[in-house]
Each structure stands twice: as C-alpha cells, then as structure tokens.
Simulated scan of single mutants.
Amino acid sequence: MSTYAGPIDGLPPQTALHTGRAVFTESYAVIPRGVMSDIVTSYLPGWGKTRFWVIARPMTGFSETFSQYILDIPSEGGSDAPEPEPGAEGVLFVTEGRLRLTLDGAPHVLGAGGYAYLPPGCDWTLHNVSAAPARLHWLRKLYEPAAGVAPPESFVTNEQHHAPAAMPGTKGAWATTRFVDPFDMRHDMHVNIVTFQPGGLIPFEETHVMEHGLYVLEGKAVYKLNKDWVEVEAGDFMWLRAYCPQACYAAGPGPFRYLLYKDVNRHAKLRGPGAFGR
C-alpha cells in the first residue's frame, strides 16, 4: 500500500529550535517538510477555500522551467477557472482525499495516487465534493511546441495502474513509474515516481541538462546534491539546477519514493531569454 506525505498542519511551538535542514544554493535547494507550515501558504485568484504551498516558481537562480504547488482543498473548495496562463500544461497528482476533475467536459474522480495530464488549452475544473479535505500536487509548465509534432492529449490514470520499471542491472532496487512513454516526442516534460528499495542507490553522480523537482512521498535517504550529502525524508522538496550532480543512497528501513519533474525532448534554445542569440 503506497503512502504519500504532505505538509504538517499548524506551526512549530515557541520552544522549537530554529536549526533545520532548509538550504538554498546556486545549484540546488532543499525545502524540508518542517518549514512548510501554515504561515507560508498562499491563496490564489479563482480558487475557493484553497491553500497553496508554492514550492517552486520560475525565477533567476531557481526553477527555470516549471512551478509546483501543493494544494489543500477542504470540502466544497476548488476552482471553475484554475489555469490563468495561456499555453500552460499541467500535471495533477493526488496524495489525499477525493476530487472531481472535469476535463474537456468529461467527469473523473481522483483519489490518492490519481494522476492527470492537462495539455495546453484544455478546459478543466477541479472540486472537492467529499466531506474530507483533499491534497494534491499541481505542476505547471509553458508547453514548448516542436515542428511537425502534435501537442499531447489529456489523460487520467492512477499510480496503481502502472508497474514500476526497474533500472537496468538493479534487480528492482531502483525503479521508475512512468506515466508517459519516454519516446513520445509530443511531451516536453515528464512527471514520474522514482522508487528505491532499502539498499538501492544511484551509483554515480548524474550530471545532465534536465532540471529536476523532487518531492519525497515516502521514506528517507541521503541525497548527493552538487558537493553535499543531504538527509531527506517524506514531505521534503528538492530542486536541482540543470547539470547539478546528483546521487542517492536509500538505507531503509522502507522504500524511498519521490515525485520527479524533469524537462525533456526539446532542443536547447539558442535565441531569446537565457540564450546568447537575439
């Protein structure tokens, strides 16, 4: 049975120590679960009764390609006009409760582990129609068209319908639950779930062009971020800049799992913002 961590309600007591694991550097950031308290939530236009933890947003020296929210939606909360940005695509991943997603006129019920891909320009609404609160992740990115490639279609599924694929030579100690075919060029981002069994590891320092957002759903591990080994646990968020070296060792006692964002399948831009050409 999968479990999904989330922020902790309330504030730490006045007797709590200040020192924690939060860190923000030029190549990575760690936002621990313990600092995602009520006081750092936001409320956004178009959403009724909904709190947001904004854990990634595009800005110089931080996330370049995506934003990521954790939403807390009480009973009868939600939105009829959730996405304000033309051209934005999104992924919803539910960690708690039950939600009604209406996507291009079709109703869907999303429970824990529910996953929806929202292509640019689609019509969608989201509401909590149950008595219990619901929580989910919403990842957003401006879709980058490619010549001769049609935009992807929407889909709704659940993690339980996808078997994790073991990484070569790991005998299942390191596996990825993929919701999109890696060879499908229509998609310019992947949002997957990575699982390490106790003793599983990334046995080399991955250094690559993809930007990463990692939200720890379950377990704990030590993660190599640039030059530092950092302890992380369920409910923590990590951002990794492109080319930031990364490795991982999951000692247990249970599985270590995280929701992973990365930008994929597009050429490097040579002109425009962030490039040398004009």
Rank of each mutant, 00 (worst) to 15 (best):
G46Q: 03
A221L: 14
G97Q: 00
V35S: 07
N158L: 00
H108K: 09
P7E: 06
E144P: 02
G114C: 04
A268N: 11
V222P: 00
I39M: 13
F204I: 08
Y261M: 10
P32M: 05
V23Y: 05
G87N: 02
M210W: 11
F66Y: 09
A275W: 10
A247Y: 04
Q68M: 12
R33E: 08
L270P: 07
G148H: 11
L11V: 13
S130D: 15
T65G: 05
G61E: 07
Y223K: 05
Y143G: 02
G97R: 00
F24C: 06
G121Q: 07
I8F: 03
K262F: 05
T19I: 13
P119R: 09
G277V: 10
W53V: 08
D181C: 09
F256L: 12
S154M: 11
S37L: 10
V35W: 07
H162N: 01
G111D: 10
E83P: 07
T207W: 08
W239R: 00
G277T: 09
V35I: 15
Y249K: 04
H187R: 06
F179A: 04
V129R: 15
P168L: 08
N192L: 11
G90M: 04
Y28D: 01
S27I: 06
Y243K: 07
M238N: 06
P253A: 09
A221D: 06
P245R: 04
D263S: 08
L118G: 02
D228S: 11
V194S: 15
G10A: 07
T102E: 11
S63V: 07
S37D: 13
V23I: 11
A131C: 05
